[in-house]
Design a protein around this nucleic acid. Structure first.
Lengths: 216, 216
DNA sequence: ACCTGAACACCGTTCAAGT
DNA sequence: ACCTGAACACCGTTCAAGT
């Protein structure tokens, strides 16, 4: 039984196994993927060039799942929020995989096209040319950081004696909504409002140096 | 020459070697660290319990380098911006190490103390109890995302024919300041302004649902 | 207490052999 | 074209031996 008539595995199956493993224990091994697919590790090399390419296919899986909003209609702020939400929604389905993929995130053709559209909207809205790229970077940084959730559930083990206010604040987030979801929405809205302010007052927002060193 | 009178290596030297290697090629091997210190890999185990503990010491190195601003004086917005800048400044010194450490970021005693102070300031400023933790998470997410710089230098290889506006925007960022620095400041100011707005208008900022589905 | 060098398990990757 | 199984290099980790 060396070569089966119909191939035992294919790329979608490999990606699926990798995603499952990454979600379960934050990492995966080619051997683990192979076992899950009832195959030997060396068989994988008939479908992918190596581990790095598995990661690449995982990124493509996410990219395909991101609904790129119709960019040609609507305003820059709606387009940016929609794109950010879409990214985050895709990442949320496989939280354990984000860390693994963060080393070289999704920049396929469709994503670049979305960036081009956003750039057009921003330029059209009247933003300073030098700010267009920083604005997109800033939002991208925020979305990735939100997906990684660096604080995780750490705060939930806060010692009430040592950090009473923090503990009380953590307790106050009990409820149906995860604080990370609220954090994402608060941050997203704040970023976009801040960008909007920049448009209305080109020299705003004030730097904190102004606040720290008030002119006498 | 089995045991030298004065130990050939110590934890600071191990951490230093690991940081250098991480910056140079984004990763490190215990063998590489050992070679750099003219020692065998197995010698490292007399100082650290294993690779994971090297990473832990690297995190401690960063934590020690973060200047925690005096939290008891000043307002919540100054404290948060100062803390965010301080984190980012520390990460910027060793950009290649951030990825490696992102899996389980710094949450040592000093950082927790800083979080407690921020929580106190936020509560004192009158924020909704349920928003205190999300606000801190949101900023933390942004700082980590900014340190990781997911877009990296990718945008600089944009094809002008395929993405003309994006290319022109990228070209517009040429100059002494890195666009990522501008991105960080823009985002930081925007986040803090957004939080401030939340304080003044408890129901703000408006959700995008309001914008997407205007009441008829 | 601390370095050495041999050893082991594990992992990614290669390749000849089989169909 | 695709699976197998043996093989190799590399890496983290352990440990007895040495001082």
């Amino acid at each position: 039984m060396a070569r089966p008539r119909t191939p035992k595995i294919d790329i979608p199956r490999i990606v699926q196994a990798a995603l499952e493993l990454a979600d379960e224990r934050g990492d995966f091994t080619l051997g683990e993927i192979a076992t899950r697919l009832s195959v030997h590790a060396s068989s994988l090399y008939h479908h992918v060039a190596g581990r790095e390419e598995v990661l690449e296919h995982m990124r493509a899986w996410f990219a395909a799942r991101i609904e790129l909003p119709a960019m040609d209609v609507g305003t820059w702020d709606l387009a940016m929020t929609a794109l950010a939400r879409s990214y985050r929604a895709a990442f949320k389905q496989h939280p354990g995989s984000v860390r693994l993929l963060a080393a070289a995130p999704v920049h396929d053709a469709a994503t670049l096209a979305a960036f081009e559209s956003i750039a057009e909207l921003l330029v059209g809205a009247g933003f300073d040319d030098r700010d267009v790229v920083p604005l997109m970077m800033s939002l991208d940084n925020f979305v990735l950081g939100s997906a990684l959730e660096p604080l995780g559930d750490d705060l939930y083990s806060t010692d009430p004696a040592a950090h009473p206010t923090l503990s009380r604040s953590v307790a106050a987030t009990r409820g149906p909504d995860r604080p990370q979801d609220r954090a994402f929405e608060l941050g997203l809205q704040s970023l976009v409002s801040g960008y909007r302010a920049l448009l209305e007052h080109p020299t705003e927002p004030a730097t904190v140096h102004d606040l720290e060193e008030p002119r006498p």
